[in-house]
């Protein structure tokens, strides 16, 4: 089932993963069990995903993240918001990010 993602919510990297940049590739390594589907998986993000990931913070809503990126890359806000929601949906279903304030 697809995770519900809202622009006015805050999403931040889970403490159960470590993000690393290795030889030009951005990878996310699970630490605790339950991240991803298999026990030997790691994840890599494309360039769009990496740009969004870098902005995710417990202090910013997803809308704030999209706005910042729109200014930085001089891109259309609506498209960037769509990318933000798409990425967070993928990360949320794998428990790589968490929704802040959600029990």
């Amino acid at each position: 089932m697809e995770s519900q993602v809202f622009l006015n919510k805050v999403y931040a990297p889970s403490g159960d993963v470590v993000a690393r940049e290795v030889a030009g590739e951005f990878i996310i390594v699970p630490i605790a069990s339950g991240v991803g589907d298999m026990e030997d998986e790691i994840f890599s993000l494309n360039e769009t995903g990496k740009s969004i990931w870098d902005k995710l913070s417990p202090a910013k809503s997803l809308k704030d993240v999209a706005r910042e990126l729109s200014v930085e890359f001089e891109g259309p806000l609506a498209k960037i918001e769509k990318d933000c929601v798409g990425l967070v949906q993928e990360l949320l279903k794998r428990k790589i990010v968490i929704e802040k304030g959600k029990k």
Binding site: G24, E25, N46
Partner: peptide
């Protein structure tokens, strides 16, 4: 549909596209 995240399996080839660590 556009995907942002790809899954890799540790120890399998294909993770590094340009450089090697």
């Amino acid at each position: 549909r556009k995907t942002y995240v790809s899954t890799q399996v540790f120890g399998k080839a294909g993770l590094f596209r340009k450089l090697r660590p």
